[in-house]
Design a protein around this nucleic acid. Structure first.
Lengths: 226, 226
DNA sequence: CACTAACCGGGGGAATCTCTCCGGTTAGTG
DNA sequence: CACTAACCGGAGAGATTCCCCCGGTTAGTG
């Protein structure tokens, strides 16, 4: 993986152009179909052969990194910013609303944030930042009496992934339905009328394992002969 | 798809035996891997050729029906029973706990109840009964002041599917973690400290479409969505 | 115990997807 | 404008999975 010196051999103009076309095509297709979309589809959409795709990117993870690197960095910055809200609950709400908006708008971003995709450096950074943000805001909200004290950042991450994963389904018919479910989730996090939670929260490692599983869902086929 | 069952031609003994072996094998494999497991795997586990499987069952849906018919009928009865609880909230809680227990224990049942698999008659009956149960219990709980008035049965079904879909992931590392998340969800449904919900609830049709999407991870056929 | 309709498993075609090989083409330079 | 290293796309190998065809086998009957 050590191709740290790409600068000394600049790509020829046609190669560079194809690389851009591939990234643009991947961005569109990922947005519609998610990051599991066939790589051949992406190559075709870019108007190049599949060999060219594999020549420019070692595999799916590297293409994802190229496509989402920038937008993930944007989210990262938003997370950092959210942490500075004086009213922690308001900050948490705004942050989650922003995240859900992204999950609803782009299937690829959704896959990235709700499953345990491995091998994308920017994604690891985002996950760490996301955890930190939720942890900080939740703790502060708890101190401020706005959030129930027995809920953890891992709980929030799990629920975010679980709900987020379902969002694209509802988005087809009702683009803004996610607001309703996020509001319901948030109300469950408030201290008023809360009942003690059973079972311990997931550990960070357990959460990672759970999210890895979330991605491994293959589609059930039921009607084959149509 | 008129599969008029001809009871007048009873299966030969070897054929009947193979049929039972196939159902038993499918039950085990579905439980581990979900209902999208390769049919060839099931045939191999049953010790027969794949042709035998296709000879006994028209396709995946018919095998699912044969495997889960009985257990689905059990759930159906439990639903009917839950509706008669005097304390609607207690009934609702008990019902959801029962459902989540099943979703956590069996991946096949999970697929059946959290996605929009088509072509399985028992499943359609179960979905109808499930909706009715949630609707009745929720309304009664609202009248009794135990549930917030602005939540609908469709909301509950959506959240049930969304959370249920994520349960198997957490089950690997922490078998009882789902209790925690169900408790959190339930607290969000209580009237104390609830805030008005934005956006309208999904309609029944929209919910159906959303659940259909939950199962589909990959793109449809060549070209358009079906 | 012989007969035959029903049954059986393996093998293979078709579709899909990942990744590589190879002969032809082109960008950039002297 | 000629040269060549870099680049290109199509074709295809290999894997996976659904589904059916075909020649051999067996359960049940007279």
């Amino acid at each position: 993986m050590g191709s740290r010196v790409e600068k000394e051999t600049p790509l020829r103009r046609d190669a560079r152009r194809n690389r851009e076309m591939l990234i643009a095509a991947a961005r569109e297709i990922y947005s519609d179909q998610g990051v599991d979309a066939p790589l051949d589809d992406i190559a075709r959409r870019a108007g190049v052969g599949s060999a060219t795709l594999y020549r420019r990117f070692a595999g799916r993870a590297e293409l994802i990194e190229a496509v989402f690197g920038d937008s993930l960095r944007d989210i990262l910055r938003a997370a950092e910013e959210a942490r500075s809200a004086p009213d922690a609950w308001a900050g948490l709400t705004a942050y989650l609303e922003r995240i859900f908006g992204l999950l609803a708008a782009d299937r690829g971003t959704n896959d990235l944030m709700t499953t345990g995709i491995q091998g994308v450096p920017s994604l690891d950074a985002l996950r760490a930042e996301n955890h930190k943000t939720l942890d900080v805001l939740l703790r502060r909200a708890q101190q401020q009496g706005a959030a129930r004290p027995d809920v953890t950042a891992e709980d929030l991450q799990f629920l975010l992934a679980a709900l987020g994963r379902a969002v694209p389904g509802s988005t087809v018919a009702a683009p803004l339905a996610w607001r309703r479910y996020l509001a319901l989730l948030l109300d469950g996090l408030r201290p008023e009328g809360s009942h003690p939670l059973p079972a311990p929260s997931l550990t960070s490692d357990q959460l990672g394992a759970a999210m890895l599983q979330l991605g491994k869902v293959r589609r059930p086929r039921t009607g084959r002969a149509d």
